[in-house]
Structures are given as C-alpha cells and as structure tokens.
Nucleic acid binder design. Sequence first.
RNA 1: GCGGGGGUCGCCCAGCCUGGUCAACGGCGCGAGGCUUAGGACCUCGUCCCUUAGGGGUUCGUGGGUUCGAAUCCCACCCCCCGCACCA
Length: 941
Amino acid sequence: MSAREKYWLKVWKDRRVFEPDPVQGKKKAFVTFPFPYMNAAVHVGTAFTASRVEFYARFKRLQGYNVLFPWAWHWTGKTIVGMSQRLKQGDAAVRRAFEADGVSAKEVEKFTDPEYLAAYYTKASREVVKDTGFSIDWRREFRTIDPAFRKFVEWQYLRLRELGYVVQGTHPVAWCPNDKSPTGDHDRMEGEGVSPQEFTLIKFHFGEWALVAATLRPETIYGATNIWVNPDAEYSEAKVDGELWIVSSSALGRLAEQKHDVIPVRTFNGADLIGRYAMAPLTGKSLPVLPARFVDDTLGTGVVFSVPAHAPYDFTALRDIQERRVEAGRQVKEIADTLAPIPILTVEGYSEVPARDAVERFGIKDSTDSRLEEATAEVYSAEFHGGVLTQASGPMAGLTVSEAKTKAAELLAKTERLGSMYELPERVICRCGTRCYVKMLENQWFLNYSNPEWKAQAKRVVEQAAVYPEDARQGFYSTIEWLNDWPCARRSGMGTKIPWDRDWIVETLSDSTIYMAYYCVSKFVNAEKLAPESLTPEVLDYVFFGKGVPASLAKAAGTTEKTLKEVRGEFSYWYPVDLRNSAKELIPNHLTFYAFHHAALFPERQWPKGFGINGMILVEGKKMSKTMGNFVTWKGALEKYGADGFRLALALTADGMDDADWRDRAAEDAKAKVEAILPFVKKTLKSAKDRKADGLDSWLISTLHRRIATGTVAMEELKVRRAAATIFLDIWNDVRHYLRRTKSPRRQTLMDVFSAWVRMMSPFAPFMAEDMNHELGGRGLVSQADWPSLEDFPIDESAELAEAVLDRVLDDARNVLKVVKGSKSKLNVYVCSDEAKAYFLELTSVKQNKGNVGQVLKKYANLKIQPDRVFKVLYELGDELLGKLASSRDFNEFRSLSEASEFMSKELGVEVVIQKDGKQTHDPANKAKDALPAKPALFLE
RNA sequence: GCGGGGGUCGCCCAGCCUGGUCAACGGCGCGAGGCUUAGGACCUCGUCCCUUAGGGGUUCGUGGGUUCGAAUCCCACCCCCCGCACCA
C-alpha cells in the first residue's frame, strides 16, 4: 500500500468520516451488501458486487445523505466445518483451495480448527476491504456466531413462529446413512441434480398377497402385458402397514425409512415368482411374472409391470425372451410367445408401438444395450408432451398423458390398490462414498414460503421497491411464485439453535434475512453498552417494534433507559434498507427470502426500498475457478492495481445483469488512467491564464452540465459503469477538446470544472480525489464535499451549437479531402444567408406542425434551394440540434465559424476561408447557394 | 424440462422500453501522423465495402411479419449465461 493511501485511510478514520449516527431531520441512506462467507478469501467477484454498494454510498454521501454502510461476516453453516474435516482427512483438493487463496502451508495446518479457519479469513478479508478504502462504519461489524447476534436470530425465529411462518413437517430427502444427514447436491460424488421422486405403487393381486410394482407411469396400466422381477435378486414377503406385500428385500429397508410399518415375514429368490400370475387392478387382467435382469431390486420395489408398446426396456426384454436371446425355461418361453405389445395411446411421429420405433431407430439389439436409457427418455418425453390415450385405456380414453396420470391415481385409489413411495431415480453417492437413499425426515422445521398470503406480501415488498436494473424484477416474482417450504434448520454446523427446539440449528440462508436490522444493535454491543444476554426477546421487541416500557426493560436488561431508547432510535432512523446489492444468482434464494422476512416482521414503511443486482464475474472471459487456476483474490488485485486503480477497474467492468469480465489489461488501463489524472490537472493549470470567458468556456461549462446530469442519473440507477465512463472518459475528453480548441485555457473555467470533476471522481477513486482536492486548494475532504450542482454549470445552447456545427463542418471537410484527389490548399466555407436560414426554420416549424409546406416552398422559391435537400439536412440534424437552432436566436454561424477558422486550418492542413452567402467575394464553383443552417457549403481548391 | 437474462461492426460494450437524428456511442486492439535521442506514455486522424465533392452499397443471432421507414415493434426458430432448493 502506498503512503498516500495509508495517509488518507488514517485521515478518514481519525475524523470518523464514515461513522454515521442518526441525525434527526437529515435524510439518510442505508446501504448493504450480503456478508461474505468466511470459508475462503474474498475475491474480485466479491469486490465487484460490494464495490457497487461502496460507489453508491459515497455518491449518496456527496448528495448530502447521512449514509450508513455496515459490514459483517458470515460463519453460519456446515461448509466451514466440512472443509476443516476434509482437510483433517487429507483431502488434497481442499488444501489446494486454501493455497489458491495465498494461505501459507503453516497456516493451513491450523485450519483443521474451523473457527481458526473462519477467523483467519475474516481478519485477512477485513484488511483488504479496509485498504480498498470502503466507506464502512466498522463500529457495527460482527460475525454470525457472535452471542449477541444469536440472540437476535432467536428473537427473529420466535416471532416468525408466533406468526405461523415456521412450521414443522416431514419431507423426503436424499439421505446418507453414514453421515446421518441429508446429502445436498454439492455433497455428492455421483448423482448431482437427482432428487426424491414420488413413485406410484400398484398392488397386483397375488392370492392373498399383493405383488407391489413401482412406476412413474401409472397411466399405462391398461398396456401391461406382464410383470418383471429380477430372477437373481432376493425378494420378501412382509407385512407393510398391515397389508401383505411382496417386494424386493432391499425395498423393505427403504420403505421403513419412509415411515411405513414393515414386518418381514420370509425371503426367497426372485426366480420363485417366475411363471406365476398376478391380477392387475382396474383391468382385471391376469399377468404372468417373467424374468428380466434390467430390473434393479435396489430401486423402487424391484417389481415392475411391463408395457412393451410404450417402454423400450419392456419391449426389448420381451423380445429377448421370444427370440431366445436370454436363457429361460420352456414355460417362460411359451408364455412370452403369447404376449404382444398393447398400444394404449397415440403420439404424433410414431407408429402405434412407439417403443419399437425407438428401439429400431437406435439399433438396439438386446436389453443390455446402454442406449435404452436414451430411447426411454425420448419415448417418454414424446408421449408425455403429445400423447393421447386411446379406447384401449378404457375410462382414460381421450385424456392427455398428464391428465391420465391424475386419473389413473384416482381410479386406483378407489380400488385400494394404490400406494406410493419416494425414490431417487438415479444412483446418488455421498462424498463419503456411501450410497444414499430417500428418508422421510421427521419434525423438520420449515419456513412456510408456500403460504399464499405470505407470498402475496413478499410480492408487495418487491413491488414497492426499486429494482436496479428493472430487468431483474421478473426474477423475483417468478421466485416468489415458485418457492416452496424451506427447511430452515440443520443438525450440524455453526449457527444459532432454534430457541424452542435446541436439537436444530438455524440454517445459513435462513439466519441472513433481516440481519441488516441488527447493525443498529451491534454498534452498542461492540461498544459494550449492551451485553449479549440483555438482548431478550422483550428487549428486541422494543428495539424493533417499539413494544414495551423502556424503563422497566432497561432495568431487567441491566442497561440504561437512555441506551435502550438510543438503540430504538437507531433502528427507527436507519430502517428501511435503501439499497441491497448482490449478484443475480442470489435472487432465487437470499434476496427473495429477505423480501419474505421483511414482509412477515416489519410494517410496510420498513420494507426494503431498493434491490441492486449485478452479473457474475468472469476472469479473462472464463468462469473464475480455483481449479482452473484463474482465481483472482481481492487482495491480489488490490496489490497489483492499487486501491483507486482496482476500484475504477471494477466500476468500468459491467452494468446491469451482464456478466463482468475481469481483464488484467483493462485493470492496468484503469490504474494508468487514475495515475495520469493528477499530473494532467497540474500541467493544465500551469498553462492556464486569467482572462474573460468566451464561447468555448461556455461550451465546456455547458457540456459539463450535461455530464453531471448523465452521471447523476446513472448513479441513482446504479448504472455504475455508465457513470464512471461519463466521469472518467467523457469529461476528460471534453477538457481535452477544450484545451485543443482554445487559444488560451482560462484558469477560472478550469478550476470550476476540476472542482466539480474531482467530486464526481471521488466515489470511484477517493484516494486520488483527496489528493487532487488538496492540490486544487479545496477545503476539507472531498469525501465529504457536495455533489456538483447543475445550477453552477449553466447550459449555453448557442455555445453548444457552435461546437456542434464546427464538428460537422470538420467532418464534411475531412470527407471531401479524403475523396478528392489532387493536392488542395484552400477550403472555402460558405455559411448560408439569413434568408436561407429563415426558410429553413420556417419549413421546419411548418412541417412539425403539419402545416402547408407548399406555401413556404413558394414563398422562398427565388432562393433556388431544393426542398429535398432541406428535408435531408433536417433529418440529419435531428431534433436536438434543430431545437437549439430554433431557440438560439443569438447564434451567429458565420461569426462562430470565423472565430474557429484558424483552428480548422490547423486541423485540416489547408487554408480555411469563411464567407457568407450573398456577401461572398469568391465563389468560382457556385457552391454558396447550397448552404443551409449548420450545413455550410464547401469548396476546395 | 421449468424460471430469469442475453446474442450489436476483430474484442468488450452503448443504443432497443418511447421506430426515422444509426454505418450505429465509448473503450481495447490495429494502422498513419505528431511529440520524443529511442522506446513507453501522451496527442490527432483513420479502422464494414466502394467512391476524384460532402455520395452509394451491405450490416445489428436466423427466418418471417407490421410500417413510407426496424438494431429498435410482433411471431417462430437457433445459440449462450444464471438458477432449479435441505446449499453457500
């Protein structure tokens, strides 16, 4: 870190520039960033998202707001603990991840202690965030495992439960019997994306027993020709929920986990079932039991019914027996020979036996062919989306497949031959190597996001808030619609215990929904004005709801009434949150949860006011990853580009939900840019003179007015990139244009422009801005200055017009010079006559008012200007220039171009002579008559 | 598959809501010139194709449509990114 950076950090800290307290009557802005999770080093992605909050915070401060930007650290959850454990077990990947963060081998050794790991990253991250110059009120910092924060979360959940938003339920989960915990996607070695699916169980009559088949397609029951069991697998008779069932032995354990009452009776070999008959419900058909080795006894019940017309597996297995490709007894063969596919639905693009079509097209030979999976998926998808059941399906005839599914279940339920079980449709292997299965997890705590009233309220939260960019808003509504009950507690990991059920810990996404409110409390906890144990639910009810009597509460809490009222005052003042910014992948969870919880607990006036959404970060066009080796830590970038360079690079990276591409080259440029500004300013001022303002000064001031307007709107809408581009690129170019054009730069103009410029730059590059402010003789800190006001930089339309016309003339002249061959040394510029201008303006206004164009044409016919040409130029100029032309009565085109003739001459490398049509002395090519306003005629010789 | 967001002149990107001022902003890269002992930095000009007078031609994922006129509006299709839950 440079000495200058250190210096300003110290100044800001010493003067408590970013430590706001409530000031009654002063407008406020409360801005937040989701606390980063401390299992790794903060990286450019974190910095990118957080920087948007930082830029906005500094911008709002300049606008005169009392701005609170707090920060905290997220420790809750099992990831940190899990990483420690895996490190302990010698997992090389985890070690590499730590090393990619730049952690020394010696430190990594200590990471087997999860709290040490989190503390290490917290300390390291705090340093980089501070050194980047973020305008954070560090007095309010906390970690999510702090005792006081836990009291806050306990309070939150007690109140949510009272409101009926925390409910208990039993749900199917993918379960690892070894870890004794649900196995999430990222905890799996195999089976990513696989979740419990409900299978329909159909109980086929088998004497007094029921042969129980599991299926995802109950609607095909009328197409069943036989039943498959695996002859090599072990099956069982068992009493299940009081009924007599036959299923694979493996299924019994899984049924038991799903809360079925299972009493095993006896086991036997699958082969024993072969050749016997079972009767199908609904159809009453007697179906033979045949052998098939594709039947997986560890999936479902190990019993399936065969629908060869519509299931490629069934079709192939049946044909295997018929064509003697598999060994089977004589009886089996004879039975099989009598079976034929029974089509029960039609689907476009297939014959009446879709399974056969698919099998033939894929060239599948027998039931061991792996392409059967693909064929099945294809047929299933086609039938699901376009299939219609035929007369063969009896009561379901005419229904679509999805309608028939419901109907089949209904009909089967009536026969009392229907059941259900959950199953993972594909193998799922836990990271620990254990095969997972479905478990009905009992007494799990859920946030009741499916509650329609709660959904409606959450939607209203989003509706009344600003969303930047607007494109992101729809994502919230869709999420709210889609969101189901959310399991909000876990058995292990760090976090807060559910106050009424201490076996459970509030899960990490669920303890982060209204914690911004806690920043109002943490200030007092950190200052030791409030002890963690004093934060009882009653005290917090007072702080957040204003309920209760502060005097008596204070006494019970061991604090003073004054303090308690002060805390309440903090909350009343700072809430609601004005801006919360995060990356787009948090819309479907965190940000929407945030809306839900605020809707549940707080009145409308304390609902979030603004959501900011940004894209993902890419590094050199690719997804950033530690294993790919393109991981850029915040610290690394900060050291490489300096605080201001890093900040500007972040600002210029992307807007809206576009993914931000972090490129070293761009960051280097940003760094160079920031470093070049102060020398540029100094050099420019050195050459400046004291003189009266002229048209060009007015132009620069007027242009700055426009830049301020654009920059301000962009910042208000969190279009950080656009704002930064306007401020750092456009304004710089404006000043350069001015310097190039003017014969003598005017000191006062430059001072005015620079003093506005430095204030606009300061949110992005505050260190440089403080230096520059100092250099310009500005009083106080630029971090506390005022955002430039538009009134101080008046618009001067005729000055703008003069420059615009000059630009156009230069463009035209260059074009002609390029096209014309032969050497030319003099450019004649003919400005249009006053009559031509009058004609042009009149025609414009008549045309805009849809008046009689013909009359105007007639009136000015003697000028011999072609109407087509006038209309063309009219379009070219556009409304903005035309407006200026019409309103700037004092604009004198001839004079302004004449004043610029020397400049033009320098630019074009030829002599430039300005003349006015009607008064010209030299017009050999008779061009002058073509001149129109803002479009002088040219003649090169 | 479902939900959300996108595809613009070598690259990144603005414009699209509110159609004409759009061959289309800005940055990078590249080319020429200036400055400099040189290089870098910086400054200027150029950078779709054609053009001896400010002009013409073909472009904004693909194919249709609406319109006097479409990058912008409508429809269909293709492709990319994000999310899809017991997890940060």
